[in-house]
Design a binder for these strands. Structure first.
Lengths: 198, 198
DNA sequence: GTCTATAGGCAGATAGAC
DNA sequence: GTCTATCTGCCTATAGAC
């Protein structure tokens, strides 16, 4: 599936910065943290990302690109609306399972301290999520498979908020039982409930 | 309702720090910010709250005390489970209407950077919320007023996560239409839907 | 591309005068 | 209680050698 090409330094910086932002927030992450973990000097980081704003911008761009690529893959692999919603929830679950918060959820909490550009990019991430979910839910309602009484758009915003909030409130607890239970409830409200054991 | 007693300096520090944490996060708030807004020097703040950990501790303690006092007032004023849940959602809506995130929701995102004590206090805030909601939902189910198919505890965690997430994802947008629509959907899923126009 | 060295500012925190 | 003055450390960022 993926080649064994060695990651570039820029990629490795992004990997570390991403983990730090997802666990500590933008204002809890520093060039010093990254440099220490990567084993190079702070100054060298500025060669790849001159300013912290540049780094955050690259972080959002890469995260969004990969995230929406996953949604494309869900669209390709599944026609069933309920299964696609379950796949969506599993993307979030996978992030939490690695001990992280959604990057853009984290940035939403740091919103007031972001550059105007980054603010726009975070809002756009949520907008595109809502659009994808609205489309899937509308498909399911048309088929008669989903039973949400609400407008697809309201249902989409509710699912997005519920999953972001589930990640947030699950942070103080170990494991993902809490998240899984909430995700199951949210999906059940749309008539997309997973099997009892899953 | 309230006396006109002048607020103490400690209270005014907490007021400003609370707003800063709710809008910028713990790591986006500094003693310098507070001092500038209050019109005193940084050093004077340390007389009231020797360390930042002390300040954060006091912030959580006061916020939780006031928050649960509001829930007590809801219990006193309403016996109707659906109305109590709507009252709960309105508490969150009131916070967002002032342009803020729930203090403990914000601290949940900064969780990894908090002192062990503060971590415990944030977790306890969520636990007590879940207990209150579980109790109200169980009451409503017993009465036959609420129609949640799920366990009261799952429904409680889902509502809590949904409202916290709704505040989070609403931050990039002005106004509270988004939050209100999500809150209405979450309540509707429990059979506690507000009137269409409210 | 990575290094050393350093700038300039802000962080939380303390001592001691008033 | 609030002040001035100061400390130490960390922050982002730059200059210039290698």
């Amino acid at each position: 599936m993926s080649s064994t090409t060695t990651a570039t330094t820029a990629d490795r910086i992004l990997d570390i910065a991403e983990e730090l932002v997802q666990t500590r927030g933008v204002n809890g992450m520093s060039y010093a943290d990254i440099a220490a973990r990567l084993g190079i000097r702070k100054a060298s980081l500025h060669y790849h990302f001159p300013s912290k704003a540049d780094l955050v911008h690259a972080l959002i761009e890469r995260y969004a690109r990969r995230f929406f690529a996953q949604l494309d893959r869900i669209d390709d692999g599944e026609t069933d609306a309920a299964a696609r919603l379950r796949g969506y929830a599993e993307v979030y679950g996978g992030v939490l399972a690695r001990g992280r918060m959604c990057l853009c959820g984290m940035l939403a909490s740091d919103y007031a301290t972001l550059s105007p550009d980054a603010q726009t990019e975070v809002a756009r991430f949520f907008d595109k999520n809502t659009e994808w979910l609205s489309r899937v839910i509308a498909d399911g309602v048309r088929d008669g498979q989903l039973t949400g009484a609400a407008e697809p758009r309201d249902a989409a915003e509710t699912l997005l908020a519920g999953l972001e909030g589930a990640m947030l409130v699950s942070r103080p607890y170990q494991g993902s039982q809490r998240f899984d239970a909430i995700a199951a409830s949210l999906l059940a409200a749309l008539g997309a409930a997973p099997r009892a054991g899953a």
